[in-house]
Computed example of a mutant assay.
Amino acid sequence: MTQQPTPPRSLDLALRILARAPLPVLHAAGTTIGAALAHLPNRPQRVAEINLRLCFPAQDAHQRRRLLRRTLQETCKTALELAPVFKRPPEQVLRWVRQVHGQEHFDQALGEERGVLLLAPHIGCWELLNLWVAARQPLTALYRPPRQPALEPILLAGRSRNGARLLPAGPQGVRGVLRALGRREVVGILPDQEPDGSEPFAPFFGVPAKTMTLAGRIAQRSGAVPLLAFAERLPGGRGFDLHFFPAEEAVADPDPAVAAAAVNRGVEQCVRRVPAQYQWTYKRFNTQPDGTSPYPKKRRRRA
């Protein structure tokens, strides 16, 4: 049996300390730190700047600078609010949910008794969405193990506190989610990460993006109802609104390229509602069809 790596005690302690802070304080700190990052050269700023330029070409320089600043502020809020979401009792965290928009879509999907495939992009506080769903229905979620193995126990403990079952993405994980959908449960997938392997390219804000076919394959094989969802962060630390939308039927198309394009259109629909709260600091377009990348290469450290 493989021993689970132990998370750094200093990190766990920092999360516990941050978890005691009120949400408005954490969001105010994120606003301040993000504003500073917008004026200092750093990698997240550069990546977000490139992404925004690619995805919003009609905006002028002033509009993009303003969106970049807000993006970095929201990114910092995401990082800081992770502590209470992972460490406070779930019932306390769920009190931050103010409204649920489109809950009728979620309830209707459950009523069809085909299982629900929840596509949750990296918008706002996606970890809160996980807690809310798991408090109401059996939830199985696929995840990508972090690059630092010591962080995995924190991730798993934080996401599974409300009874959610976490499975690493891979053949065994796919079999697990198909069994969960066969039991008419809810399965959650983060659909907007660049996959490995020879996956197709599909437009995302008009830019070619290597896109996972996993969501489409699961939807096709299971017959589950596909939904899009995200947790919108409200200003002033007032909490969060949840949003649920029906996904296109083409998500389950047998043509992988058609299904991938449908997934990206759904993600884009969500992002356009709260563009500053999307994870623009992620290298979404790192692999292009011609083998190039729009992002600067990492500089190698001198020996």
Rank of each mutant, 00 (worst) to 15 (best):
L119D: 12
H122K: 14
I123L: 05
C125N: 15
C125S: 15
E127H: 02
L128P: 10
W132N: 12
V133D: 00
A135D: 15
A135T: 09
A135N: 14
R136D: 08
Q137L: 03
P138M: 04
P138A: 07
L139S: 00
A141P: 06
A141Y: 12
L142F: 08
Y143S: 05
R144F: 11
P145H: 12
P145S: 11
R147K: 15
Q148C: 00
A150Y: 01
E152G: 03
L156E: 07
G158L: 05
S160V: 14
S160C: 13
R165I: 10
P168T: 12
P171L: 13
Q172M: 14
V174F: 15
G176K: 15
A180V: 11
V186F: 13
I189M: 10
D192C: 07
E194D: 14
D196N: 00
G197Y: 02
E199C: 12
A202Y: 12
P203G: 04
P203Q: 09
G206F: 12
P208R: 01
K210H: 02
T211E: 10
M212V: 01
T213C: 03
G216M: 02
A219W: 12
A219S: 08
R221F: 05
V225R: 09
P226S: 01
L227I: 06
L228M: 11
A229K: 10
F230G: 00
F230D: 00
F230L: 00
A231D: 02
E232T: 01
E232R: 11
R233Y: 00
L234I: 09
L234D: 10
G236F: 03
G236Y: 03
G237N: 06
G237W: 05
R238C: 02
G239P: 12
G239A: 07
D241K: 03
F244D: 05
